[in-house]
Simulated scan of single mutants.
Amino acid sequence: MKSFKADYVFPIYADPIKNGIVTIDDTGKILSITDDPSTLAPGTIQELSGIICPGFINTHCHLELSFYKDKIAQGGGLVNFIKDLLTLRKAGVATDDEMAEAAANADQEMYDNGIVAVGDIINTAITKKVKQQSKLYYHTFVEALGFLPEKATEVFETALELVEQFKPMQVSLTPHAPYTVSKELFKLIKKHSDTGKNLISIHNQECEDENKFYRYKLGGFNDLYEHLGLNIDYFKPQARNSLQSIIPLLTNNQEVLLVHNTCTNLKDIYFIKRFDRRIHWCFCPNANIFIENRLPKINLFIDQGFNITLGTDSLASNNKLCILSEMRVLQKKFPSIGIETLLKWATQNGAEYLGISDTKGTLEPGKNPGLNLISGLDDLRITAESTVTRLD
């Protein structure tokens, strides 16, 4: 049994506890949370400076891209980022073993940074062994990518084969993004998702060109399809942007995570409210800055009745896999968002989306959520000196 006392304990589901004490057993299960040290044996409490919170939930990562850290130029925009990434993959700059080793190192980095659960995107089986051996909980999202209607069935069946490779671990089939999934492929994924359990995680409105392409068939995505050698003559401009075009194609039987949302506006948020889709939002601010040099309009999403989560994206588009770093960026840019809100996004909300809130996301007796100590705060605000340390 171990007891930790800090300036504040943030249970997340309840108000912060000043001078709170968390007691856990040898397995990390929470036994009690109190502010009364007299209930514990003298000399058994480890006193710490900072705040204690649950382990972080990273709802969006690409572990298999870890090898590409520092290999893609910053600020070139999404289309150039995709081109550069595809060029690296095609060139075979790394063996599968090297990719797996980089993924294992990234997995350890997340553990060291207080992350306890991850929603991870894959296109290959490279990370399977890493996840089998990891201390972290993983839900793996197998991406289906295919913008040509005639390829929809083939792409869908290939993705399902990869899903089977990751079982019995938690795994589901998901569309990659509006600009890489044909309507026909969306329909196949929807039919697959309308029964059983199949969490969805889809990249959404990462740049203005995505909306421009859907509305007018203009912009950089035409260059991308030409680069890929794809004939998209079949695609006709829509009366709606990308998000408004795909929402009706998504299942209403699964939790759906919309990731990045860099160019999502209030009209889009209101549009979603007209549909009975189970939408969650994920923000990856460091990756947004790395790729597009801009952030989503986070304030628009607050108090809209949706679940907000945080992710790191990949090391190809980020210099670290650290949820505290993501919170730091958001607090600096949006100072009105307090640490209590940010911590909820980083813990409880992610656990609820991934379906693991019975064990993780909040500090409650009987749960095993992991314990993080955040130090170096200034009046409960995250600073450049703030750090996270795993207590369990």
Score class of each variant (00 low, 15 high):
Met1Glu: 05
Tyr8Ser: 07
Asp15Ser: 13
Pro16Arg: 05
Lys18Glu: 14
Gly20Arg: 01
Val22Ala: 03
Thr23Pro: 01
Ile24Trp: 07
Thr27Asp: 14
Thr39Phe: 09
Thr44Ser: 09
Ile51Ala: 05
Ile52Gln: 05
Ile57Asp: 11
Asn58Ser: 06
His60Leu: 01
His62Leu: 10
Lys69Trp: 10
Lys71Ala: 08
Gly77Pro: 03
Asp84Tyr: 06
Ala91Gln: 13
Ala94Pro: 00
Asp97Met: 12
Glu98Thr: 01
Ala103Leu: 10
Asp107Lys: 06
Gln108Val: 11
Glu109Leu: 12
Asp112Gly: 04
Asn113Gly: 05
Asn113Glu: 12
Ile115Gln: 10
Ile121Asn: 13
Ile122Tyr: 07
Thr124Cys: 05
Lys131His: 07
Gln133His: 09
Ala152Trp: 05
Val155Trp: 08
Ala159Lys: 06
Phe166Asn: 04
Phe166Ser: 04
Lys167Thr: 07
Gln170Met: 11
Leu173Arg: 10
Pro175Arg: 00
Pro175Lys: 00
Lys183Leu: 09
Lys187Arg: 14
Leu188Phe: 04
Ser193Val: 00
Gly196Gln: 02
Ile200His: 03
Asn204Gly: 01
Glu206Gln: 05
Cys207Ser: 11
Phe213Thr: 00
Gly219Ile: 11
Asp223Thr: 09
Leu224Phe: 10
Gly229Leu: 02
Ile232Met: 11
Asp233Cys: 02
Asn241Cys: 02
Leu243Thr: 02
Leu243Phe: 02
Val256Gly: 03
Val256Phe: 05
Cys263Ala: 09
Asn265Phe: 02
Lys267Pro: 05
Asp268Ala: 00
Asp268Phe: 01
Ile269Asp: 03
Arg278Gly: 11
Cys282Ser: 12
Phe283Ile: 11
Pro285Phe: 00
Asn288His: 04
Ile289Leu: 14
Ile289Val: 13
Leu295Asp: 00
Lys297Ser: 15
Ile298Lys: 00
Phe306Tyr: 15
Ile308Asp: 10
Thr312Pro: 00
Leu315His: 07
Cys322Ala: 11
Ile323Gly: 04
Leu324Met: 03
Glu326Tyr: 02
Phe334Ile: 05
Pro335Gly: 01
Gly338Glu: 15
Leu342Gln: 07
Leu343Cys: 08
Gln348Ala: 15
Gln348Phe: 14
Ile356Cys: 03
Gly361Asp: 04
Gly361Phe: 00
Glu364Ser: 09
Gly370Ile: 02
Ser375Met: 08
Arg381Ala: 10
Arg381Asp: 10
Ile382Tyr: 07
Thr383Tyr: 05
Ser386Thr: 11
Val388Cys: 05
Arg390Asp: 10
